[in-house]
């Protein structure tokens, strides 16, 4: 494999993981909760593309709309799903001052609930759907052919990250999110509304998951009720490796994980390639052994008491 191809592959996967890690990191920053259901929000976005049916072949629903309408609809839909999970599962717990372990379990339960509902509606057999057919073409960079969808994934991720930076630094709501992540109690004293800022974080995380679901489906074309799990796990591990509580750390951690995964895929001997994830996550455990606070962590990351 050529160097440029490898780089595009690595950055494309790294972009996906970075987007997941960003969504998880946003919610974690404020709630101190790892949101297991984040990957399943992405899965919901992907399944919304087709008609709900137990049949093996599902005709496209939102998937046949014009591109702009599809992007807006899926993003909005998944953002709403994110807000609903917050409203009905996490907010009641938060108002009862539930501890971190309870929140973590409840997000696991929400994740399992979403998967089970999709399993009930769509059955467990993978389905196929094709969107953005024009993205499956190859394009040439410096005489090397690379998949257009990978380039688009990287570009979209870069744009979204840039937009997030502007939003978090320049827009009042973004500043409120940062303030709430820094010191939740103090932010509330200064007039940040707790429920609103958390709902906003869930909405943005959901929107990111919606866009990711489109990029993912455009690349693979396959729907599976557990498709969100590996991505979510990559996102969690990305945030942990990057250093919990730092958004930049989460994005870099996700990127690192994707790049490491692609490099392992390319460099491991043929026979060991199917076991790539085992090497990847073992590598993660080694990284954590050396730097338990994560690679890009801020100084103070003691346990909350």
């Amino acid at each position: 494999m050529n160097g440029i191809q490898l780089m595009v592959d690595a950055l494309s996967l790294g972009s996906q993981y970075a987007l997941v890690a960003l969504g998880i990191g946003l919610v974690f920053g404020i709630m101190r909760m790892i949101n297991f259901a984040h990957g399943d929000l992405m899965m919901l976005g992907a399944y919304a593309l087709v008609v709900p049916t137990t049949a093996d072949v599902a005709p496209p629903l939102i998937g046949k709309w014009p591109a702009v309408a599809m992007i807006v609809a899926i993003t909005a839909l998944v953002a709403c799903a994110g807000i609903l999970t917050e409203r009905f599962a996490f907010r009641p717990l938060r108002h009862r001052q539930a501890d971190g372990a309870t929140l973590l379990i409840s997000s696991f339960a929400v994740s399992y609930l979403l998967q089970s509902v999709v399993l009930l509606v769509h059955t467990g057999r993978p389905k196929s759907v094709s969107i953005f057919a024009e993205l499956t073409r190859q394009m040439e960079i410096g005489g090397v052919r690379v998949a257009l969808v990978d380039v688009v994934t990287i570009a979209v991720t870069a744009l979204l990250l840039l937009a997030m930076v502007v939003f978090l630094r320049r827009v009042r709501w973004g500043v409120e999110i940062r303030a709430a992540s820094e010191d939740f109690t103090m932010a509330r004293i200064l007039g940040v509304r707790a429920d609103a800022v958390i709902a906003l974080a869930f909405a943005i995380a959901g929107g990111l998951a919606g866009i990711l679901s489109l990029l993912y489906v455009a690349k693979t074309g396959v729907l599976d009720f557990r498709m969100g799990v590996p991505l979510a796990v990559a996102g969690f591990v990305g945030t942990v490796v990057g250093g919990m509580g730092s958004l930049i750390g989460a994005v870099l951690g996700g990127l690192f994980l994707g790049v490491a995964s692609s490099l392992l895929q390319a460099l491991l001997p043929e026979a060991l390639r199917p076991g790539r994830d085992a090497f990847l996550y073992s590598l993660v455990i080694v990284v954590l052994l050396v730097r338990p606070q994560g690679l890009f962590a801020p100084r103070d990351t003691g346990e909350r008491t």
Binding site: P230, V233, F236, Y281, V284, G302
Partner: peptide
Amino acid sequence: RLDAVAASIALLSLLFVV
């Protein structure tokens, strides 16, 4: 050696490895 949340996630990645 990890803090509580990170340990939960690390245990999950152990499951993936195995």
